[in-house]
């Protein structure tokens, strides 16, 4: 139980943390551009290619695809059911921070139902023509802290590292794949099981 006077804000990474499958490979498979994207994703999760560079390269590849179709596809991404239930029960104390483009992810995020923060782009003729903002997750953490929240960040990838470093409590999850080794030195809790994660989140309320 949270005995601080501060309210708690749980900020979740999306891919592999709330979803039980990565969304970018899902897009790549659907539109048959696996080969181009697969290596990039793998190297990025491992921390071998800087996240921002990798992200720009992925948007170049995937931006040509019809945006509305991508959004419909991502709406069907598999989610962790008990974690989803936790988020929906405590939606005012939960937020999602994902580097993915809003135009691709908004249907999925609205289905989840809490506040969300994404990267932005300009869409013309149902295609991504320009990347305008790449989300820095640590800024979301800092914003909530300035509003007086105690922030718990839950993530699994190298692109969660700075946000987890800034957060009051950092939880690494290995529910979908083993978390990036780079985040373990700043991790408070490491959890491999959805029920155990939900239990820990409830204990932090």
């Amino acid at each position: 139980m949270n005995t601080d006077t501060k309210p708690v804000m749980f900020i979740f990474d999306l891919d592999g943390t709330v979803t039980s499958e990565e969304t970018l490979p899902l897009i790549a498979n659907h539109f048959k551009v696996e080969e181009e994207i697969e290596n990039l994703t793998k190297e990025t999760i491992q921390g071998n290619i800087p996240f921002v560079e990798s992200f720009i390269r992925r948007v170049f590849i995937l931006g040509k695809l019809p945006v509305s179709e991508v959004a419909d596809l991502l709406e069907t991404t598999k989610l962790y059911p008990h974690l989803l239930e936790f988020i929906q029960t405590h939606r005012d104390n939960c937020a999602i921070a994902t580097g993915n483009l809003e135009c691709w992810s908004y249907k999925l995020l609205q289905k989840i139902g809490c506040a969300y923060y994404c990267s932005d782009s300009i869409v013309e003729n149902n295609k991504v023509v320009k990347l305008t903002k790449i989300l820095r997750k640590e800024q979301i953490v800092e914003n909530y802290q300035q509003e007086g929240y105690k922030v718990v960040f839950i993530g699994d990838g190298n692109n969660d590292l700075e946000a987890m470093r800034v957060a009051d409590i950092a939880i690494s999850v290995g529910t979908t794949h083993y978390p990036s080794k780079s985040i373990l030195p700043i991790t408070d809790y490491l959890i491999f099981n959805e029920e155990a994660l939900c239990r820990q989140l409830s204990q932090l309320l």
Binding site: L184, T187, Y189, L190, I191, F192, N193, E195, A196, Q200
Partner: peptide, 12 residues
């Protein structure tokens, strides 16, 4: 530990 159960919480 993961050979036996995965529902523990590891605390660093």
């Amino acid at each position: 530990v993961l050979k036996y159960r995965n529902d523990v919480v590891f605390v660093y």
